[in-house]
């Protein structure tokens, strides 16, 4: 009975606080995406201009963890399969955050564009087999300066 109460409390806390934090994070992401809108990103391997430019490797990364509610919902959805909506927003948030941190680094060096952008996702396993501590998102590319 007590176990069930703790479980229910964790789910409720996870849902309420997680939702508030997610909404706040999305707001901050949208604001910064506007602010960094003038830094262009390309997935192509070659720079759009061959003028002599200085270049430097820039990267941005973030480790995020799901809240308790998301984990429980994902586990239940895992039975029937299909879209795990709760994880979609988590990873989307993380990737956009990683991009923004990369752009922040690029701007600090005075760059206007980043080419050959690569993404990498790495899940950090927990102590219990099959458990997950968090997911790391990495974005990196070459910033063209000047």
């Amino acid at each position: 009975m007590i176990d069930l109460a703790i479980f229910a409390a964790l789910v409720v806390i996870g849902y309420v606080v997680g939702r508030i934090l997610e909404a706040r994070h999305y707001r901050s992401i949208r604001e910064r995406e506007q602010a960094y809108g003038n830094i262009m990103m390309f997935a192509s391997r070659f720079p759009p201009t061959l003028d002599p430019l200085r270049q430097d490797l820039v990267a941005g990364s973030v480790v995020v963890s799901a809240d308790y509610f998301k984990v429980v919902v994902a586990r239940l959805q895992g039975i029937v399969g299909g879209r795990l909506k709760t994880y979609e927003s988590l990873l989307d948030r993380a990737r956009r955050e990683a991009i923004l941190r990369m752009k922040e680094e690029a701007r600090a060096r005075g760059a206007r564009m980043i080419v050959n952008v690569k993404f990498q996702t790495f899940s950090i396993p927990g102590r219990k087999p099959g458990s997950l501590v968090g997911v790391e998102m990495l974005a990196y590319g070459t910033a063209l300066l000047g």
Partner: peptide, 18 residues
């Protein structure tokens, strides 16, 4: 990280570590 796993969000310690 265990505490953060309840409410979700960034695990700053891990971000820095990696």
């Amino acid at each position: 990280a265990g505490l953060k796993n309840i409410v979700g969000g960034e695990l700053k310690g891990y971000t820095d570590l990696l």
